[in-house]
Design a protein around this nucleic acid. Structure first.
Lengths: 187, 187
DNA sequence: CGAGTTCTGTACCGATCGGTTCAGAACGTA
DNA sequence: TACGTTCTGAACCGATCGGTACAGAACTCG
């Protein structure tokens, strides 16, 4: 009875997410979002309500499609140092192996922390949750005696890798490898 | 012969720097800069030329008055693990000891990396230089055999502390302390 | 005091911001 | 084919952006 939608929300969110990821929230204008999604303003607003809501969906998409998949092996029950090392090495490989313009995007969540967490409650909540999830994943894969202390260091290393990626992906890869080497000595 | 300036550029730059530090470059408007400096737009432009140039001076001021002083003991010839530990502990103390709204500013340079380095050449250069300086300072204070590898990890920890500060200063302090404890085992 | 210079407040500039409105094209259904 | 609905493009909204022009207040010096 009605005209069918000519786009999928998932595709549009992904396109918007990549733009937010690379340029940040403030520096992404509605004109940018129109361009990357291929949609008109009115379609965007009809489908998503506002720039902020689209951003929230972009963050959700990032977590589901980018962050969590890489984390899943580390979060699996029975994960140990091997999984920690693998995680760090996969991070290093991602930094070294993806084209620099892509790697330089770093991490949408980490970027959002520095840009928005201090003054936006949603961004703060998302940032806390992400950091906490990393921390728990590492702690769960480490011997209980040293877990708390070393999980802090590893979580810090991951955050630093993703910040350094914005500067020099190669340096980020070096850092991720250094962390992997350190973790390997904990076997 | 001429009217004397009723403000010092150093004071104005400091005020602007604190605003940029807390809110970032994009989110700081000329109206904000007028407010925090107590100066009119025309005075700001007459004295500094543009928002970008004022930002460059703010970064310079941050390096000279905030970043370098804390780094000096670590960079001194003869510095060793003790100075590394002291640096990390002073960072932890700063995170835990300054009022949360101030600590939550994190680091102007690190914030600038995530906000601007990917698309602004000046920001990229400043970020590279800062990271490199941290790296060299740590490397110079560590035994040559392990220096390269561990300097990477420590530089990463510092960056992560300053990102985490934007989220939760207390968590940033915990991370800095964890790094200090780790470094202490290298004595 | 008065000349010379600098600083300051206001008002304004075009551009762009996020967001809204609405007429009509496009399409599925009957 | 004709109806009902949805999507789309363009034009527009007030607000704010960084930046400028200029007249006059403020002040130092001769």
């Amino acid at each position: 009875m009605a005209r069918t939608r000519s786009f999928t929300t998932a595709d549009a969110v992904r396109a918007a997410r990549d733009q937010f990821w690379e340029h940040g929230y403030e520096a992404t204008s509605l004109a940018d979002l129109e361009r990357v999604t291929g949609l008109n303003r009115s379609s965007i607003y009809q489908a998503f309500g506002s720039k902020q809501q689209l951003f929230a969906l972009a963050v959700e998409s990032y977590l589901a499609e980018v962050a969590v998949p890489r984390l899943s092996a580390l979060e699996a029950p029975g994960a140990g140092i091997d999984q920690v090392v693998e995680y760090l090495e996969s991070l290093a490989a991602a930094m070294a192996g993806t084209p620099a313009p892509l790697a330089r995007r770093g991490c949408l969540i980490v970027n959002t922390i520095t840009e928005r967490a201090a003054h936006d409650a949603d961004a703060h909540t998302v940032g806390i949750a992400y950091r906490d999830r990393l921390l728990r994943a590492f702690a769960g894969a480490l011997p209980p005696e040293t877990a708390a202390h070393r999980a802090e260091l590893l979580t810090g290393s991951v955050i630093a890798v993703l910040v350094t990626a914005r500067l020099t992906p190669a340096a980020a890869a070096t850092l991720a490898r250094a962390a992997a080497i350190e973790a390997r000595t904990w076997r």
